[in-house]
């Protein structure tokens, strides 16, 4: 699973072309957002987009598991709702008179493969209610929580499931400890 992208496949050339086309599209969109509708800006824009696409392909080669559109449609509302809850949770704890904190460390073993999926997962943990990723050792994430009474484990598992769906990663049901 982890070393999958080293295995050569039949349609490599086609895939590389499709990937570079996608990146060029994304960087063009970013350029358009940055500069607005001024046509003359593309004199600089076209070379910049091409160089950026080439560099990004060199720095992060296309992964085996492309983003899933359906996964994104599930992930974005989930993320927005959860981070809003996280903000409300922090606001409640800061503004109430007595301190409602019961912090602690929780350890979690993730099934997500090494690479962008795992990094994305670790970064999003910090935006969910009551959790903050403090350490990542191989597949073991140490999470700092504001309140040990919260269902931290269930929250992180839900996030992991959504990230897996977003990145088209199959999740075999693992045995919970």
């Amino acid at each position: 699973m982890i070393r999958d992208h080293h295995v050569p496949r039949g349609s490599t050339l086609f895939d590389v072309n499709r990937h570079s086309f996608l990146r060029i599209l994304v960087f063009s969109a970013v350029w358009w957002v940055l500069t607005g509708s001024d046509i003359s800006s593309w004199i600089v824009g076209i070379p910049a987009v091409l160089i950026a696409s080439k560099l990004s392909l060199m720095l992060s080669p296309p992964s085996q598991c492309p983003l899933s559109l359906l996964g994104a449609l599930h992930f974005i509302p989930f993320f927005l709702y959860q981070s809003f809850r996280g903000g409300i949770d922090v606001m409640r704890r800061t503004l109430l008179r007595q301190q409602l904190l019961d912090p602690g460390l929780v350890s979690y073993v993730t099934i997500l493969p090494r690479g962008s999926a795992r990094i994305f997962f670790v970064n999003t943990i910090s935006l969910l209610p009551g959790t903050l990723s403090a350490k990542l050792d191989e597949n073991q994430v140490t999470v700092h929580t504001l309140d040990r009474g919260m269902p931290v484990w269930a929250n992180i598992q839900a996030l992991e499931y959504h990230v897996a769906a977003l990145m088209n990663i199959s999740t075999q049901k693992k045995n919970c400890l």
Binding site: L80, S83, F84, G86, G87, I88, D89, V90, M91, R93, T94, L95, Q99, L101, P103, S126, L127, P129, G130, L132, A134, H144, L146
Partner: peptide
């Protein structure tokens, strides 16, 4: 509330909680 958390919370980890979550939701 992000600022209040930064001032009021007891250690560096809890302050990070307040800062990242509250400010990102506020900006959103």
């Amino acid at each position: 509330s992000g600022t209040v958390g930064l001032i009021r919370f007891p250690d560096i980890y809890t302050r990070l909680h307040a800062l990242t979550k509250a400010d990102n939701v506020g900006l959103g």
